[in-house]
Lab assay of single mutants.
Amino acid sequence: EYSEEELKTHISKGTLGKFTVPMLKEACRAYGLKSGLKKQELLEALTKHFQD
């Protein structure tokens, strides 16, 4: 599980793409985000969540 700060850091540095799909799905579930099946959809959901 990833902390909010850790995820925000990866988003701001542009390194969230280094996460694997299972890692991204886990992060989306942890924050109650609707997650797609594609890596890009997962990245967009997390990025949008933490930028709002």
Results as ranks from 00 to 15, higher is better:
E1W: 07
E1M: 05
E1T: 02
E1V: 09
E1D: 15
Y2E: 05
Y2P: 06
Y2A: 04
Y2C: 05
Y2W: 10
S3F: 15
S3T: 10
S3K: 09
S3Y: 09
S3Q: 07
S3P: 07
S3A: 03
S3W: 08
S3V: 03
E4D: 06
E4C: 10
E4I: 13
E4P: 09
E5K: 10
E5G: 09
E5C: 07
E5F: 10
E5Y: 10
E5S: 12
E5H: 09
E6R: 14
E6F: 13
E6K: 15
E6I: 14
E6T: 14
E6Y: 09
E6L: 12
L7V: 04
L7G: 00
L7I: 01
L7T: 09
K8W: 11
K8R: 13
K8Q: 12
K8M: 12
T9F: 14
T9C: 11
T9N: 14
T9S: 13
T9Y: 14
T9R: 13
T9K: 13
T9L: 12
H10T: 03
H10S: 09
H10P: 01
H10F: 10
H10R: 09
H10K: 02
H10C: 09
I11A: 07
I11R: 01
I11V: 10
I11P: 00
I11Q: 00
I11L: 10
I11W: 09
I11H: 02
S12T: 13
S12K: 15
S12V: 13
S12R: 13
S12G: 11
S12W: 08
S12H: 13
S12A: 14
K13A: 12
K13D: 06
K13C: 13
K13V: 07
K13L: 09
K13P: 04
K13G: 08
K13E: 14
K13W: 00
K13F: 07
G14T: 00
G14N: 10
G14C: 03
G14R: 06
G14Q: 09
G14I: 00
G14H: 01
T15V: 02
T15R: 04
T15D: 06
T15I: 04
T15N: 14
T15A: 04
T15M: 04
T15K: 02
T15E: 06
L16C: 00
L16I: 08
L16N: 02
L16G: 04
L16M: 07
L16E: 07
L16P: 00
G17R: 11
G17Y: 11
G17P: 06
G17F: 07
K18S: 15
K18P: 02
K18Y: 05
F19V: 07
F19E: 06
F19T: 10
T20R: 04
T20H: 01
T20Q: 05
T20F: 00
T20D: 12
T20E: 10
T20M: 00
T20G: 09
V21T: 14
V21P: 02
V21F: 07
V21L: 10
V21E: 11
V21I: 09
P22E: 15
P22T: 11
P22Q: 15
P22F: 05
P22G: 10
P22D: 15
P22R: 12
P22S: 10
P22L: 06
P22C: 03
P22V: 05
M23V: 10
M23I: 04
M23F: 06
M23N: 01
M23K: 12
L24G: 00
L24H: 00
L24Y: 04
L24D: 02
L24W: 00
L24M: 03
L24V: 00
K25Y: 03
K25E: 13
K25T: 13
K25W: 08
K25R: 13
K25A: 11
K25F: 08
K25M: 09
E26K: 08
E26P: 00
E26C: 08
E26A: 12
E26G: 10
A27V: 09
A27R: 01
A27K: 06
A27C: 03
A27W: 09
A27T: 06
C28H: 04
C28F: 07
C28A: 08
C28R: 01
R29L: 09
R29Y: 07
R29D: 14
R29E: 13
R29A: 14
R29N: 15
R29G: 08
A30G: 07
A30D: 06
A30H: 03
A30R: 15
Y31I: 08
Y31L: 10
Y31K: 04
Y31C: 13
Y31H: 15
Y31F: 13
Y31E: 04
G32M: 02
G32R: 07
G32C: 04
G32D: 07
G32N: 13
G32E: 05
G32T: 05
L33N: 00
L33H: 01
L33D: 03
L33M: 02
L33I: 11
L33A: 01
L33Q: 02
K34E: 13
K34C: 12
K34G: 08
K34T: 11
K34H: 11
K34D: 13
K34F: 06
K34W: 03
K34R: 11
S35T: 15
S35F: 13
S35G: 14
S35A: 15
S35Q: 07
G36S: 12
G36D: 15
L37P: 12
L37F: 09
L37N: 07
L37V: 15
K38C: 12
K38I: 07
K38F: 03
K38A: 10
K38W: 01
K38L: 11
K39Q: 08
K39W: 01
K39I: 01
K39C: 03
K39V: 03
K39T: 02
K39S: 02
K39L: 04
Q40C: 10
Q40A: 12
Q40I: 12
Q40D: 15
Q40K: 12
Q40T: 13
E41G: 06
E41V: 04
E41W: 01
E41S: 05
L42F: 09
L43E: 11
L43I: 11
L43S: 04
E44D: 14
E44R: 08
E44A: 10
E44Y: 11
E44Q: 12
E44H: 09
E44M: 10
E44C: 09
E44K: 05
E44I: 06
A45T: 14
A45C: 11
A45F: 02
A45D: 04
A45V: 11
A45Q: 13
A45G: 07
L46F: 01
L46T: 00
L46W: 05
L46G: 03
L46P: 04
L46E: 01
T47M: 10
T47G: 07
K48L: 13
K48F: 06
K48N: 12
K48C: 11
K48H: 06
K48E: 14
K48Q: 15
K48D: 13
K48P: 01
H49M: 06
H49P: 04
H49K: 05
H49F: 15
H49D: 00
F50C: 05
F50H: 01
F50D: 02
F50E: 03
F50L: 06
F50T: 01
F50Q: 05
F50A: 04
Q51T: 07
Q51C: 02
Q51F: 07
D52L: 04
D52M: 07
D52A: 06
